[in-house]
Design a protein around this nucleic acid. Structure first.
Length: 568
RNA sequence: UGACCCAUGGUGUAAUUGGUAACACGACGGAUUUUGGUUCCGCAGAGUCCUGGUUCGAGUCCAGGUGGGUCAACCA
């Protein structure tokens, strides 16, 4: 059985099994913990998940899946002041959206409050924990600093009886918040600050979203996390780098707790950082509360709900995470790699349509008025199985303003006086003139003639022109709003700038709204979150703000654009 | 006069665990193309932070530096 799992891993391994996977393989080989693999994803229900969490989710669930183990979902709800059920549902939704499932293993740290409480009393009885009556500031002062050892609390050597009595009374609600804490008795002069008699229980009178008012004391993260891992039989407890210094404490508690061979192991990996954005919950909250974005699901946010609304697919996010890997190096990943991952996915799956963002009227002067013909266009050249659709064509059309110039620069292949282009799926047209607005100088209309011999699919359609452009029939077009997004920040690393607030680097042009866009009529029935490639422009996704009669699209990402590069 | 962690092309990762630096993205050039997209082909780019050591052989091991990160919530 184990052989099979390992073999399996070898097959998929190619080069580059990450260091955590290597540890797991080795552990299975050695038959550690009975050869079982159990991981957990432990979000605190105090906010929305972002792509950094997705990195952890892919690791926790992915590794369990790959090595024949299981992954638990455990809500780390040890702080009633910050948490709320509201977040539980969104977290579950996001994990499912990414394509992972925890089966019936939905746990809560609060499920273990009784056992944790008993364990704390056990530590007291063994002389390994004590109640400290000093205020937070004093305890903090006594803890010393990284370069200066701490000093022991005057309450450190209370009797077991007194500690037990005090702790129980703390939990009965006899004392005010902040008046007493329970501390583990470890080593006030440890070089590791976390070992200097860490607080393990504090008094909190805010009702808990699951246990109500049952408890007046709540375990701290360090006292809950490893123990919960232990209770659940977790073998590999994967977390981010900043918990590295907590590991000795994690192990210390496990040492006091365990009775047999089994022990969970904490392994740390690097966080996901992306250029041009911020990833901390606190900072994201600041953006939401400050009104810099429209909410947690603003399409510019790195939250999973934001990315989803933007049009990112779960596959693209997983692909991206797979690409960046897991190491112990604090890397800043280029968003362009994320963008590459969506393009890659959407290119294969998104149906092509015609959408004109900045419409310019084109009149085909030799095409009869009042006539509409339908041309057939393939839905996706990458996948003929996606079929074709009919698009109406007539005398008056819209093209994108970018596709016409009065006086073209070198290498400009699009429409200009005297030049020919093909209208995708229809005819080759030649620009014969244009009309300019006398006041604004803007071009109002462009005049063209079409060559009836060149209809796509027709017998003599093979005449080559330098380029093909998209278009929509003016009388048939539907009006839509399109929201164009750019990076949220103007600096790659908005947080890394000394003495500057990250909000100073907010990009004022991160959202542009176009309200007069013209789309081909087949889009009429598009539903929220439907994704399309507006041919030659980019990938777009229907925003949930859309109504039956008013479609709103979000631009997920532009197509690669070698022309705009050429221009420079 | 702290502890712990990290350092490989522009970016992110890999290197059969000591065997002569590879992959992806990006850049550049070309071919194909009814998307200036896609695809295909090609090319450039690091000698692995520095110094020393061990070894026939070091990106991998050791020592010492340098640079960066984390740690002093009754947050997680």
């Amino acid at each position: 059985m184990n052989e099979e799992v390992l073999d399996n891993s070898k097959k998929e391994s190619r080069p580059g099994i990450n260091f955590i996977e290597q540890i797991i393989i080795e552990d299975i080989r050695q038959g550690k913990n009975g050869g079982k693999i159990v991981t957990r994803f432990p979000p605190e229900p105090n906010g929305y998940l972002h792509i950094g969490h997705a990195k952890a989710i892919c690791l926790d669930f992915g590794l369990a899946e790959k090595y024949g183990g299981v992954c638990n979902l455990r809500f780390d709800d040890t702080n009633p002041e910050a948490e709320d059920v509201e977040y539980v549902e969104s977290i579950k939704e996001d994990i499912h959206w990414l394509g992972f499932d925890w089966g019936d293993r939905e746990y809560y740290a609060s499920d273990y409050f009784d056992r944790l409480y008993e364990f704390a009393k056990d530590l007291i009885r063994r002389g390994l924990a004590y109640v400290d009556d000093q205020p937070a500031e004093v305890i903090s002062e006594q803890r010393g600093s990284p370069t200066r050892p701490g000093i022991e609390s005057p309450y450190r050597n209370r009797t077991v009886e007194e500690n037990l009595d005090l702790f129980e009374r703390m939990n009965r609600g006899e004392f005010e918040e902040g008046s007493r804490v329970l501390r583990a008795k470890i080593d006030m002069s440890s070089p590791n600050m976390h070992m200097r008699d860490p607080v393990i229980y504090r008094i909190l009178k805010t009702p808990h979203h699951r246990t109500g008012t049952k408890w007046n004391v709540y375990p701290m993260y360090d006292f809950a996390h490893g123990q919960c891992d232990y209770f659940e039989g977790v073998t590999h407890s994967l977390c981010t780098l900043e918990f590295e210094v907590h590991r000795p404490l994690y192990d210390w508690f496990i040492d006091q707790l365990r009775t047999g061979e089994y022990r969970p192991r904490q392994i740390e990996f690097n966080r996901l950082n992306l250029t041009y954005t911020v990833m901390s919950k606190r900072k994201l909250l600041e953006l939401v509360q400050g009104g810099y974005v429209s909410g947690w699901d603003d399409p510019r946010m790195p939250t999973l709900c934001g990315l989803r609304r933007r049009g990112y697919t779960p596959e693209s996010i997983r692909k991206f995470i797979d690409l960046i890997g897991y190491t112990k190096f604090e890397a800043i990943n280029d968003v362009s790699l994320l963008e590459h991952a969506v393009r890659d996915d959407l290119n294969l799956h998104a149906p092509r349509v015609f959408g004109v963002l900045n419409p310019l009227k084109v009149i085909i002067t030799n095409y009869p008025g009042g006539v509409t013909e339908e041309v057939e266009v393939e839905n996706n050249p990458e996948d003929p199985g996606m079929g074709t659709r009919k698009v109406p064509f007539c005398r008056e059309l819209y093209i994108d303003r970018e596709d016409f110039m009065e006086t073209p620069p070198p290498k400009y292949y699009r429409l200009y006086p005297g030049n020919e282009v093909r209208l995708k799926g229809a005819y080759i047209i030649k620009c014969t003139g244009y009309r300019k607005n006398d006041h604004t100088g803007e071009i109002d209309e462009v005049y063209c003639t079409y060559d009836p011999e060149t209809r796509s699919g027709g017998p003599s359609a093979n005449r080559k022109v330098k380029t093909t452009i998209h278009w929509v029939s003016a009388p048939h077009a539907i009006n839509a709003e399109i929201r164009l997004y750019d990076r949220l920040f103007t600096h790659e690393d908005p947080l890394g700038q000394k003495d500057r607030d990250f909000k100073e680097f907010l990009n004022p042009d991160s959202l542009k709204i176009l309200k007069n866009c013209k789309l081909e009529p087949s889009l009429k029935n598009a539903k929220p979150l439907d994704k399309f490639q507006f041919q030659r422009v980019g990938y777009f996704c229907v925003d949930p703000d859309s109504t039956e009669s008013y479609l709103i699209f979000n631009r997920t990402v532009q197509l690669k654009d070698t022309w705009s590069k050429l221009k420079q």
